Amino acid sequence: MAVLAVIDYGMGNLRSVANALLRVVPAGDRVVVTSSPEAVRAADRVVFPGQGAARDCMREIVGHGLVDAVLEAAANRPFIGICMGMQVLLENSEENGGIPLLGLYPGTVRYFGVSPRDPHGGERLKIPHMGWNELQQSRPHPLWQGIPDRARFYFVHSYYAAPADARLVTGTAGYGIDFCAALGRDNVFAIQCHPEKSDRAGLQLLHNFARWDGEPA
C-alpha cells in the first residue's frame, strides 16, 4: 500500500486535488492531505499544489517548516508540482520586483504583461490567462501516457515558468507567447495547469502519476 501526500501549506484548492486523486489511485493506496514535514518525508509520492502569489506561497512554505521536506521529496521520489507548485521550483519570480523561490531549477517566473496580444489577430488578451488551452507535449514522458498531444487543460495564472535549461520543458502552451506549461527531470514532473479541473486529460495525468515509479521516459 502506497501513501500519496498532498502538501497543505495553506494555499491551493486541496479538496479538488485530493478528490481527483481519490478517483484514480490504485485500490488500497492512501491519499493524505498534510502540513507535516514528517508525513511528507514518509510518503511514497508527493503532490505539491498551489495557487495565488509567489510571495505568499514562499512565506507559508517557510512558516510551515516545509522547505527541506519539499526539496528532499523532489530529490528522491515521484513528485508533481501543480500551478504555483510548479513555479516555485525555479529560482525567482518577477512578482513584486523579485521574489526568491526554492531554486530547485535555474530560471525565472515571468509576468505575461499588462495586455499581451494574440500573435495572429492582434487582439488584446486578458490577464490572468484563465480557461481551457491546448498543451503541446514537447517530449515523451510517462505522465503523458494515454493523453493525446494538444489535449486541452484548464489554466489560471498571470505568470509563467521560464526555466533556463530548455531540456526541462516537457510541454508548452500559447497565450500571446509560447510558454513552458510542463517541466520535468528524473523523478519530478510539474505542470502549470490544474489537472484536477481538466476533465479526462487531467484525471489521466493524475492516474499516471499515482502509478509512476519516478523513472523518466
Rank of each mutant, 00 (worst) to 15 (best):
H120R: 10
E91M: 10
P148H: 00
H129P: 05
E72S: 13
L104I: 08
Q145L: 02
G81A: 11
G131V: 12
G81N: 06
T170I: 11
E60N: 15
H129M: 13
S158G: 15
Y105G: 07
A69K: 00
H64S: 12
G131T: 04
A75Q: 12
T170Q: 04
G107Q: 10
I61L: 15
L101P: 04
W144S: 01
E91Y: 04
F112N: 06
V114P: 10
E123R: 10
E134A: 11
W144M: 02
L89R: 01
S93C: 14
E91N: 04
E94I: 00
P163Q: 02
Y105S: 07
E91R: 11
L104W: 01
R110H: 08
G113Y: 05
V114K: 15
D165I: 00
M86I: 00
R59G: 10
F155I: 14
A69I: 00
N92E: 13
E95K: 04
E91F: 08
V156P: 03
Y105C: 09
L101D: 02
L71G: 02
L71A: 07
S138M: 12
C83T: 01
D165C: 03
E72Y: 03
G121L: 02
M58S: 09
P106T: 07
V88Y: 13
G81L: 04
E134V: 00
Y111Q: 11
F112I: 01
G65W: 06
I82V: 12
S115V: 13
Q145G: 05
D149K: 01
T108L: 15
Y154Q: 05
A164T: 14
I80S: 08
H64V: 10
N96Q: 14
K126Q: 09
L104G: 03
Q145V: 11
A173E: 01
I80G: 09
R59T: 14
A162P: 03
G63Q: 14
